[in-house]
Simulated scan of single mutants.
Amino acid sequence: MKRGIITVIIIAAAFAGIMFVLNKNKAKNEADTATVAIQNAAVAVRADTVQHRDVNAQYITNGVFAPKQEVVLSAETSGKVIRVLVQEGAFVKTGQTLAIIDGDKQNVNVSNAQAVYNNAEAEVARFESAFSTGGVTKQQLDQVKLQLENAKNNLKSAKLAASDVNITASFPGVVNSRSIEPGSYVSPGQQMFEIVNVSTLKLKINVDEKNIGQVKLGQNIKVQSTVLSDQTFNGVVTFIAPKADGSLNFPVELEIKNNASNDLKAGMYGTAYFGGDQAVQALVVPRNAFVGSISSNQIFVADNGKAVLKHVVSGRSFGDYIEIISGLEEGTVVITSGQINLLDGTPVEIIK
């Protein structure tokens, strides 16, 4: 009996010792985990400083050159293509014949319409003579005159259809594409040629709301293409949209006269330079300091080891830098990367 009691006491003491050790280890582990959590709570970010910089005040924006004139010529009558008179890449003049469609059917229609018109004309002359002697009534005379008018209109329509067998250029330009060959059968509306005039081009660009005020109709703008970096072209502002798009940009169109060899091509990228090439001092931050887009006007600053969300008023764009009108002071440290992991008040660690 006494031995059993001793055994129970020993087991209880061992169990109590085990529990003591486990609790001690648990407390140590929790303390270590808390320490690691504190160390790892700070989000690694990169930063820059708000400061006054000498920046180029010139506003630069890019667009794509488009032809001032382009048209797709389609068949207006059905028939077989007899001749194709131009190749792709050929320069054509206004009114030049590009292709000829078999007009036998149209010519037959003209002959038939002409015969009907001649007969109606003779009928009117006969009825007018009979009317003068009382042989026909005024109503009968009016009916044959109406028939003559209808015959005249049908003849005119037949002649127009017959003239449609000649496909002609509506303005001077270059044959950009040709989709027919001699012997092809075409139907009304079928595409035959695409004519493009690149002697004058349009450059379609977007100007943000902070710079649209300096753009005026008729203004001369320096234009360049990266493909023709050694040449400079003059652009004239011909259109300014009265309404901005969803990104607060205003579509603007410039008209550019090509050089003698038409080196500028539709589809090339072009760059427009607004304002003079002059340096000014401005309070700026890097473009990538903004949360999301520049239009959000939100920037995280690093303050006492924490990220603080600031609302600012942004100004002009200077390439990689954006002017700050209000909301930040010179010397403020702004976060330029890692913003996706931040909330207002998140601990941060600035890395190089």
Rank of each mutant, 00 (worst) to 15 (best):
T33A: 15
T33R: 15
A34M: 12
V36A: 14
I38F: 06
Q39T: 09
Q39P: 07
Q39F: 11
V43R: 14
V43W: 05
V45W: 04
V45S: 09
A47R: 09
A47L: 07
D48K: 06
D48N: 12
V50I: 04
H52W: 07
R53Y: 10
D54G: 14
A57Q: 12
A57S: 13
Q58F: 06
Q58I: 04
Q58R: 13
Q58Y: 02
Q58G: 08
Q58D: 05
Q58H: 02
Q58P: 09
Y59F: 14
Y59K: 03
I60D: 03
I60W: 01
T61Q: 08
T61S: 10
T61A: 07
T61W: 04
N62Y: 08
N62A: 04
N62I: 01
N62D: 03
G63W: 03
V64G: 03
V64D: 02
V64I: 14
A66P: 02
P67Q: 11
K68L: 15
K68N: 10
Q69M: 11
E70P: 00
V71M: 08
V72W: 02
A75C: 02
E76P: 00
T77R: 03
T77I: 10
S78K: 07
G79Q: 09
G79N: 09
G79E: 07
V81T: 12
V81Y: 12
V81F: 14
I82P: 07
I82H: 10
I82W: 04
R83P: 02
V84T: 10
L85F: 11
L85V: 00
V86M: 06
Q87C: 05
Q87E: 09
A90N: 14
F91D: 13
F91R: 15
V92L: 04
V92R: 05
K93D: 14
K93T: 09
G95L: 05
Q96D: 09
Q96H: 05
T97H: 09
L98M: 08
L98D: 01
A99E: 02
I101N: 10
D102F: 00
D102G: 06
D102W: 01
G103M: 02
G103A: 12
D104W: 00
K105S: 09
K105I: 09
K105E: 15
K105P: 04
Q106Y: 08
N107F: 03
V108H: 11
N109S: 13
V110H: 04
S111L: 11
N112I: 06
